[in-house]
Amino acid sequence: MTGALEAGPQVPPAERVIDVRDLRMRYGTKDVLTGVSFAARRGEVLALLGPNGAGKTTTIEILEGFRVRSSGEVNVLGADPAGAGEAWRARLGVVLQSWRDHGKWRVRELLGHLGMYYRRYSTEAKPRPWPVDDLLDVVGLTAAAEVRIHRLSGGQRRRLDVAIGIVGRPDVLFLDEPTVGFDPEARREFHDLVHRLTDVDDTTVLLTTHDLDEAEKLADRILVLSGGRIIADGSADELSRRVAGESEIRWTRDGQRFVHSAANPTPFVRELLLQHGDDVTELEVRRNSLEDTYMRLVHDFEGGRK
């Protein structure tokens, strides 16, 4: 079954902003990536899911040009990240998990300074950098513009990381676990921001996350990485349909709550309504959640390997 999923949706070669074929990475004798292939088109949001140690960070670092792969073909914005120059770098946004760098700088000062590096790459279609005041507004840091960075809260700091990632108005944006440590409100705001980026600037986004809910909300397509390979590639909806699973049916009758699982809920519900008619209230049928799908995929894959 995973064989059918592996192929994933076909992205025509001409539209590929990110194109990865048979990417392999080996550290010493340990194979971390054993043949990763996927592609992304302009303006698409891809979420890379997978258990710890599956190779998500390695993959994203190879695409960012921060790590040299063992073998395979990788193409980002028409160039191989391993040897691409500074003009290529200028079209890329990388959101890093910051810690305490530039602690003495003020928020506006740092964004203004980092923006300067992108001035020479400004084009008519895409003026660079992003004006600092607009950028502060977009990430919700206007009130903190003059604050020294070491005084920011964790959530503010992550928003600053995102702002730094997009200050050059990138064509491709990489985010490695962008919302770790966000409260629900900050997370919601961050999701709105990503939507705005893809809508307004047609930015292609590749993010890794552990948050399945986030992947479902943000991503046009989800890639599941496990054991060094992509074991599934598709929208959340497609993935859950492709994984055979049980649906959950819940209802209330005579003040009592019932739960039942069925591989095919339709005959069960018909039978239920035939028997009890209007006595059945609060009827819900839930197909596999993304979480169920994901667990199932990873579990099946790992089981299959043993």
Partner: peptide, 16 residues
């Protein structure tokens, strides 16, 4: 600056 990520930021910036 290497430890705290300042250099990585520079690397992520063109001519950084």
């Amino acid at each position: 600056d290497r430890e705290d990520g300042t250099l990585l930021r520079a690397k992520a910036t063109p001519h950084g």
